[in-house]
Simulated assay, not measured.
Amino acid sequence: MVNNSEKIRAGIVGGAGYTGGELLRILVHHPKVDITFVHSNSNAGNPVSDVHTDLLGDTDLVFSDHLSDDIDVLFLCVGHGDAKKFLDANTVADKIKIIDLSQDFRLQKNAELAGRKFVYGLPELNRQSIAEADNIANPGCFATCIQLALLPLAAKGLLKGELHINATTGSTGAGQSLSATSHFSWRNNNLSIYKAFGHQHLNEIGESIKQLQPGFTEAVNFIPQRGDFTRGILAAVYLDSDLTGEEAIALYEKYYAGHPFTHVSRKNIDLKQVVNTNKALLHVEKHGGKLFIISIIDNLLKGASGQAVQNMNLLFGLDEREGLKLKAGGF
């Protein structure tokens, strides 16, 4: 908890990447946060605005290669596998809360390291546990988008039969390091499928489903796609259901009624409604015996850094929306 007159002192490790940049864009304007340091081995000594050029005029922060214990919360915006390596190599005082944006601590079998227990940071699933936690494992972007489409059904034990999911993500989902499939000349005017039926986020999706519906053992068929756009995820989900369309919509509206960022739309939805925001939008339809759910988020915000700040707000007893009243691009 923080008093109204106090500010949360934040440190960021891995501040030069996509998630680190998005986190900086939020926190430099967050009324309850002071950024103590932004760590980057490759950019130490350089102004943050040299890397994140849109922050010129917003901050005079300089990248550091030193860490400080004079903080309340540490954000780990590092690659998968690197968060655990960082914590193995560096001593972080027990008083400092950690929010990890990698996948290192998301699964129950990996959720503890050197006495630190990590809580899975999906507020629509674990809000109370997050508020009482010291360390958060921020969910994956695909996992966030897909779980939001399934949680209301799982909470009532209504997932039946196999689940079918097709989801498309923008190029920022691949991280900032260049690869053959993130290069402009390959990605532009192109569409491809990758890791069909075997994406790493399936494991955390499965754990969350079983948290709410322990008896669910059916297949989750997930086809991820790389889209020809920069940011956002659209997931299309369908399954067998005995609910009527109105019953399903009412179920979703009731489940998300107390969650400020997740909304159910009775009209069809599109990515531009959520890009550059921390919102998730859902649209539910019934087609014969199938229930069809569309779920959309910004992969860098609700799917990463925005959700990390949402979790920080919960950890420190702030309004969940603090610093996250962000605006969609529209056009």
Results as ranks from 00 to 15, higher is better:
N189R: 09
G206D: 08
N189D: 11
S185I: 05
L212T: 13
A196N: 06
I205N: 00
A174I: 14
V220A: 02
F222W: 08
F216D: 00
L178H: 08
S208T: 08
Q211H: 14
S185P: 00
N190L: 10
I193W: 09
L212A: 13
I205S: 01
L191D: 04
A180V: 13
Q200G: 06
L212K: 14
S185D: 03
N189I: 01
N188V: 02
E207D: 02
S185L: 02
F184R: 09
L202S: 03
R226I: 09
K210N: 13
Q213G: 00
L202H: 04
N203P: 03
I209F: 01
I193Q: 14
N203R: 07
G198T: 10
G173M: 10
T172V: 13
N189A: 11
F216L: 03
F222P: 09
Q176M: 11
H201T: 12
F222C: 10
Q176I: 13
Q225H: 15
H201F: 06
G206W: 00
Q225I: 04
N189V: 04
H183K: 12
G206H: 04
G173V: 01
F197Q: 11
I223R: 12
F197S: 09
F222D: 00
T172Y: 15
S182C: 04
K195S: 07
I193H: 15
A219S: 08
E207M: 06
S177C: 07
N190H: 14
Q225N: 14
T172A: 14
S177V: 15
L212G: 05
S192G: 13
H183T: 12
N221D: 07
K210E: 05
N221Y: 11
I193N: 14
P214H: 03
A196Y: 04
N221M: 09
S185Q: 09
T217H: 11
N188H: 04
G215S: 04
